[in-house]
Every structure is written in C-alpha cells, then in structure tokens.
C-alpha cells in the first residue's frame, strides 16, 4: 500500500490527449478566466485565479470544495516556452500568496507541463510533478515523508 503511494507520488506523470489545437490548450492553461472554469476536481469550483506568466512571475489558484472550504495553490514560473512548456516551483500558499512552511524546512516540488502537437488537431498534455530536496541527498523516502506530512495537514484541515 505504502509502496504504491510512494511510486505514485514520486513519479506523478499524467498525460492527456485533448482534441484541440495546442494554442487553445495553452490558452486554457494560462488564461486565469479559463483556468477558473476547470481547476479542481469534480464538484469543486474555482473562485479566484491569478497568473503572472513570465519567468519569476507567480500564479495563485484557488479551488473551493462543495462544503465551502478553499484550497490555495501557488507557484513561481522558472521556465516558459509558449506554447510548448511551462515549469514552475510550487510554494505553500493562502489567499495572500506565498506562505512559509511551518518548520521552515520545505521540500521543493516542481511541475513540468508540456504541450505537444500530435496531429489531427490534437494536443498531448503531459503533467509531471517531481519532489526533491536541495542540497543533501536525503533519499526519496524522506521526500515522500514530507509530502505525507503535507497530506496529513491537509487531511486535518478537511476534518
């Protein structure tokens, strides 16, 4: 059970083929008004979204659960190659933007999103999330542990 979770978290790669041209998918991913229409799982809404699409710029997404609870996600763009690739490093966030993790000992989480033209007007989107500690080679288990902590905190909030 734990093994499966580890694999899922460390190698989270999700691909999806959209029946739409790449420019359109890129737009839906980078235009706040459009992101608000799809960000969050089934039953969630997105009441707010800010995007400053440039290297060093940040994004701040919000999704609202059916019970009204809001979840904020933020990141800083480290690479933007329109309309092919976006790389961002995530940070803990609330409605005011970035917040420092409680113990000041954060693990870096990086998202790489690529948009690939595959013909017939279709686009393959690949979302890859990676976790690593800067500096010491602390091993993947620790990284997973930290993520687990984040999860537990999230779960506690939900309760």
């Amino acid at each position: 059970m734990a093994e499966r979770a580890t694999n899922l978290l460390e190698n989270l790669v999700i691909t999806r083929i959209f029946d739409a041209p790449r420019e359109l998918v890129w737009k839906a991913w980078t235009d706040p008004k459009l992101v608000m229409q799809w960000w969050g799982p089934t039953g969630f809404t997105s009441p707010s979204c800010e995007i400053d699409l440039r290297v060093g710029g940040r994004y701040l997404f919000c999704m609202r659960a059916p019970d009204g609870q809001e979840f904020w996600s933020g990141g800083e763009y480290t690479e933007i190659a329109a309309p092919e690739k976006i790389v961002a490093v995530l940070f803990y966030a609330n409605k005011n933007g970035k917040v420092e993790p409680a113990d000041g000992n954060d693990v870096e989480v990086r998202d790489v999103v690529t948009f690939e033209e595959i013909g017939s007007g279709q686009t393959k989107l690949t979302f890859k999330r990676s976790h690593w500690d800067e500096g010491e080679d602390t091993g993947s288990n620790q990284i997973f542990d930290k993520l687990a902590v984040f999860v537990a905190e999230l779960a506690a909030k939900v309760k």
């Binding site: 059970m1 499966r4 899922l8 989270l12 998918v25 991913w29 969050g40 799982p41 089934t42 687990a148």
Partner: peptide, 29 residues
C-alpha cells in the same frame, strides 16, 4: 499510512478530474 495512500490515489484523481473539466472548456472554446 492509509490516509496517505488513499490521498495518493486522490492526487491522481484530482488531476484526472480537472483534466475532464479542461476537456469540456476546450470543447466550448
């Protein structure tokens, strides 16, 4: 550990469901 494991599955589901919605947005676009 069960909570973490369940969440890991939710994690993927989160993206899959978001992508379903994105798909609908693209169709509209």
């Amino acid at each position: 550990i069960k909570a973490v494991s369940d969440w890991a599955l939710d994690y993927r589901r989160f993206w899959e469901e978001s992508f379903d919605k994105l798909d609908a947005v693209l169709t509209e676009m």
